Computed example of a mutant assay.
Amino acid sequence: MPQSITITNEDILRCVKLYCEIPTLNKKIITRKVIENTANEVGVKVDTEELQQAADKFRFMNKLNSAEDTWTWLKKHNLSLEDFEEFIRIDLLSNKLLQHLFLDKIEPYFFEYQLDYVGVVMYEVVLEDEELAIELFYAIKEGEMSFYDIAHQYIQDTELRRKCGYRGIVHRKDMKPEISAAVFAAKSPQFLKPVVTSDGVHLILIEEIIQPQLDETLRQKISSDLFSEWINEESAKFEIINDLEDHCLTNNTETYLLSK
């Protein structure tokens, strides 16, 4: 028979502090307060029907197909039914507030920054040795090796090696300047000369340059980016005061931890 163990609120708080998760939780708490306060100010609300629809959608997406499944999930996460309702309400309120604040700003933002959303389908191998990278570059150019060979020999990450360094669609704004300058000056398909950055020496194979289109996926990404930026700006206006017990070092017998 398995042994039982009781986990208290104090245990959870202690664990959160010991694993240095207070800053992460602070950010989430402030985000919720910013959303609540702003929604109240601009009159964004969630009604009962919207809440029910959002709860049904959440249960469907998480395969909580019965009341029993839902209760099991709530118990696993130590949530009451009221907690679950509040969880759904905040998420729904966040989405409604996003639409209220930024729906009419998406198109102007896209046309101003559309170059940032130009994408490239690319494969990449990052090396530490520039001379080796140059040697491998010419080996590929001269047909002595393939990019596939180099990826399988020099990529350490197992999953990335299996994909031969495939990075998917990468947007200009998500690249280091040195890489974006080289990538978007090229024509696809093309194998680039080694590019040196602070991360190492990059061997890059360009498959396709993709011009941006303001489809639903990109609309959602832009609105999400704008919302995140706004949350960060609003959160920075707050001074965080944690009303938690102070366990800082209090006597000389403990200061050896900080002596070096």
Rank of each mutant, 00 (worst) to 15 (best):
P177I: 14
I204P: 01
K63L: 12
H100E: 10
D225H: 10
H152F: 07
I206R: 00
E159Y: 04
K163C: 08
L218E: 02
M175N: 03
E239V: 15
K163M: 12
K173P: 02
D199I: 05
I210F: 00
Y166V: 12
V46M: 02
E36H: 09
R167C: 15
H247V: 15
E208C: 02
V42I: 15
V44N: 02
I209M: 02
R161I: 12
N26T: 14
E234P: 04
S66F: 05
E135R: 09
T253P: 00
V196T: 15
G143A: 08
Q3L: 13
N40F: 07
Q114S: 13
F184R: 02
H171L: 13
T255P: 00
E107R: 10
T255N: 06
K76W: 03
I134A: 03
T72R: 06
T6K: 11
M1H: 06
A182N: 07
I5F: 09
I5W: 04
A185Q: 11
R14A: 11
C164V: 11
D225E: 13
E254S: 13
M1C: 10
V16H: 00
E254W: 04
E112Y: 03
C164T: 11
S188Q: 06
I30P: 02
A67G: 10
D47A: 05
S259L: 07
L115K: 15
I206K: 01
N252C: 07
W73S: 07
P2M: 09
N65C: 06
G165Q: 02
V44P: 02
A55N: 05
Y148P: 00
G43Y: 06
Q220K: 14
N242E: 13
K237E: 14
Y148M: 08
K237N: 15
F227V: 10
F227Y: 11
H202D: 04
N65W: 02
V46Q: 02
E135D: 09
A139G: 01
